[in-house]
Design a protein around this nucleic acid. Structure first.
Lengths: 227, 227
DNA sequence: CCTTTTTGATAGTATTACTATTATACATGA
DNA sequence: TCATGTATAATAGTAATACTATCAAAAAGG
C-alpha cells in the first residue's frame, strides 16, 4: 500500500497559494472534499466552505481563485495519486499483460484499498471524481487551462498505462484512445450501476467493482489481442 | 435521410409548457441552442436568452423551470433523434454485424449528414451534446430525475443498439455496458481530438469522424467476437 | 364577442461570486 | 528586541444570477 506521507507534487498551479503548506490550506482541502461530496459541485460555495471551516470567504479566495480551480486541483491530485498507486502495484511485474491487469484493478478499486492518513480522504475524493471529473475539462476555457498545464496529471497517467498496452501489442493503433476511454468508463459504469442501472449489466453495491473490473479487462484484452 | 418534419415526442416532462407548441417556445429552443454553444452552459443564463429573443426572463421561466431542465430537454431530444436516425439507416438491414457497423457510423457522424429544416439545428445541438451532456446526469438529483423519466430516451437508445450486439453474439455478457461506454467514448474522443490531443490517437479536424469510427468499430467487434 | 390563454412590463428578493480595506496575530531574522 | 513580513479575521460592498409575483395588454379560440 502506498504511503500517504509521500507528498504528491502537481505539475501546474491551479491554486494561488500552495494549500498543502499551511494549516488553513489543508483544512480547505479536507473540508471541501467532504462538502462537495455532500452537496454536489453545483451547490457547493466558498461561503458554505468558509462557514464549515470557521473562517471567512475572503480567506478561502486567497488559496483558490474560484471553485472550479479548486476542483481542478482536487481531481488532478487524484490522477497523480492514482498514477503513483498504479506504479506502486506494478513496478516489479515484468509481464505487461499482468501489469495492465493489475492497473485495471487499481483503477476500479482505488477507493477501497487505502486507509487514509493524510488530510486528503481518498475514498471521498474518489466519489467526487466519479461524479464531477467530467466538469474539469468540459468548460469553455479548456484550451487556456490546457496551456496552463491543468491536465498534465491525467495525460501522464494515460501515457503511463498506454505504454503498457503498447508493450503487449505494439501493432495496436489506439493505445491512448483505449486508455482514456477505459478510465472514463470505469467511473461511468460505477455511476450507472448506482443510479441508472438499465445502462449497464454491472450490479450496484459492494460487488460493483468486480463487475467493472471484469468488463474492462474483457474490453481491453479483447481489443488489444484482436487479430 | 430522415425527415425533420416528423415530430419527435419525448417520454417525459422536463418542461413546464410544451415548447414545440408555440412560436415563443420554438424560439427558446433554437436560440438556446445557439447561445449555449456560444457561451458554454455555465455562462448561459435565461436573462441573456430572453434578451437575445427579445422577450423577458419571466416568459422563458414559463417554459422551463431552470436552465438545467432546458439542457435535459435538448439532450433528450438529441438522444431520441439519434435513435430515430439509427433506425432509419438500419431498419432494412438483416445482418446484425452490418447493422452495428452502420449504427456506429451514425453515432460518430450524426452532425454531418442532416441538413436541418426545423427550428432545431442538429449540428449545433451535437456540439452541445459533446460538450455538455455529462452534466445532464452528473447532478445530486439524478435519482429524482430518473424517477421522472428524464433519461428514458438515452435508455431506449442504449437498449436498441445493445439488442443488435446481443444478436451478433448472445453469449457476450455486457451489451449495455459496452454501448453506454461506446456512446460516451464517441463524444469524448471527439472532444479530446479537438482539445486534448495527447489523450487519443484520433486526429482533430474534418477527418476526426473517420478515426473515431475506426477506433469504435475495432473496439466493439473485437470485444463482441472475443473467444 | 366574450373568455381563456399567453405574453410583456415591471419590480423585487435571496444568493452567489467575487473585490477591497483594515486590523491583528504570529513568526523570523537581524 | 525591534522590525518586517506573512497569514488570517472582520467587515463592507458590488454586480450578476436565479428566481417569484403582480398586473395589464394582446392574441387566440370557441
Amino acid at each position: 500500500m502506498p504511503n500517504n506521507q509521500i507528498n504528491l507534487n502537481l505539475n501546474h498551479r491551479s491554486y494561488l497559494r500552495e494549500p498543502e503548506a499551511t494549516e488553513l490550506g489543508r483544512r480547505i482541502l479536507s473540508e471541501s472534499i467532504k462538502l462537495i461530496d455532500e452537496l454536489g459541485f453545483e451547490q457547493f460555495t466558498f461561503k458554505k466552505l468558509a462557514t464549515e471551516i470557521g473562517t471567512t470567504e475572503a480567506s478561502v479566495y486567497r488559496y483558490f481563485e474560484n471553485k472550479h480551480k479548486l476542483l481542478v486541483y482536487l481531481v488532478s491530485w487524484y490522477w497523480a495519486w492514482l498514477n503513483y498507486t498504479i506504479n506502486y502495484h506494478t513496478h516489479n511485474i515484468s509481464d505487461p499483460r499482468e501489469r495492465l491487469s493489475r492497473a485495471i484493478e487499481v483503477i476500479t478499486t482505488s477507493d477501497l484499498n487505502d486507509p487514509t492518513t493524510s488530510h486528503i480522504d481518498e475514498r471521498t475524493l474518489f466519489r467526487i471524481v466519479v461524479a464531477e471529473s467530467p466538469k474539469v475539462y468540459h468548460t469553455k476555457d479548456v484550451d487556456a487551462e490546457n496551456q496552463e498545464g491543468y491536465f498534465l496529471e491525467l495525460k501522464k497517467l494515460c501515457r503511463n498505462v498506454a505504454e503498457t498496452v503498447a508493450a503487449i501489442n505494439p501493432a495496436y493503433p489506439y493505445p491512448h484512445a483505449l486508455i482514456s476511454t477505459l478510465l472514463d468508463s470505469a467511473h461511468q459504469q460505477l455511476f450507472f450501476a448506482e443510479h441508472l442501472p438499465s445502462l449497464t449489466e454491472v450490479k450496484g453495491g459492494p460487488q460493483s467493482r468486480d463487475g467493472i473490473t471484469a468488463f474492462l479487462k474483457n474490453l481491453a484484452f479483447a481489443t488489444i489481442d484482436n487479430r
